[in-house]
Amino acid sequence: MQESNFIRFAEVIKVKSEKRVVSITVRPLITNCTGSIYFTDLQLQEGDKLTGYTPHTEAFLKYSPNPVRFHNGVVRSGDTIIIFNLGETSNGLDCYIYPLQAMEAGSIQLSQGMGSHKVRFDSEAYAGDEFALKASTRECLRNGYPTPKHGFYQYTAATDSKHQVKLQDRKSARVYFEYKEMLKGDLRP
């Protein structure tokens, strides 16, 4: 049986900042080769740093000796929260939203950076509710019970990580983000 080696490649696609990207077509092209080639994942993301919640299989991650880190605040209508992750790599982010007023279904949204990795809570919200989007356990909860969402679990990128919180216009909520910093490990003995 032949051993398979998977290699992660990253390329930067530069666009003119004043132009809006409507679509991208990716056509993998292999020339002058023999053997088998498998494409397992293609990922597009904003920014110039390679991130992602799932690490390459050659590296294990280990927890930093630092305690669990958290950031909290109050958001009205919407705001961008910047998290300073001092870990060496990305990690899942547990997000908690506590509405201070009633909000329409689908009006609470979270996203990364400039709007990627977006998630929307599909149910209505009332003052005192707790919405929990937990990447650590892959759960989406409202007051401790499963609730529908549309989109992705969130993560915090290494170094600084931008997170947009959008609420119904002129409504407010407390937000609480929690994560554990991760260090790079090594699979080899």
Rank of each mutant, 00 (worst) to 15 (best):
R138G: 09
P28K: 03
V68N: 02
K62N: 05
Y126R: 12
I97W: 00
A135N: 08
G151H: 02
T156M: 01
K180A: 13
A105C: 01
V68I: 15
Y38T: 15
P28N: 03
E104W: 01
Y179S: 12
T25A: 04
Y145A: 10
P189G: 09
H56V: 08
I13N: 05
V22E: 13
D94N: 02
K14G: 06
Y126L: 14
T51M: 04
G144Q: 09
E139Y: 00
V15R: 12
C95G: 04
H150T: 12
V68R: 14
S4N: 08
L29W: 11
G144D: 07
L133W: 08
F70C: 04
G113P: 00
P146M: 03
K49P: 00
H117F: 04
A127S: 14
V12W: 02
T159N: 02
I83G: 01
T54S: 06
S172Q: 11
M103F: 01
G78R: 11
K171G: 03
Y155P: 05
S123I: 13
A102D: 06
K134M: 06
T57D: 12
A158R: 10
P28G: 10
N91L: 03
H117D: 14
R174T: 01
E124G: 09
G113A: 05
G185H: 03
N66K: 11
D186P: 03
P55N: 08
E104I: 02
G87T: 01
K180G: 06
F39I: 07
T159A: 12
S23W: 08
K62V: 13
V21Q: 04
R69I: 12
V68C: 05
H71W: 04
D186R: 15
R170T: 06
L61A: 10
F60L: 13
E88W: 11
G35R: 03
Q164S: 15
E11V: 09
K166G: 02
A158N: 10
L110C: 04
Q101W: 02
G35T: 02
I82D: 05
S161C: 10
V175G: 01
S4V: 10
V12Q: 10
T156P: 03
L42E: 12
F131V: 02
N5Q: 13
S17R: 11
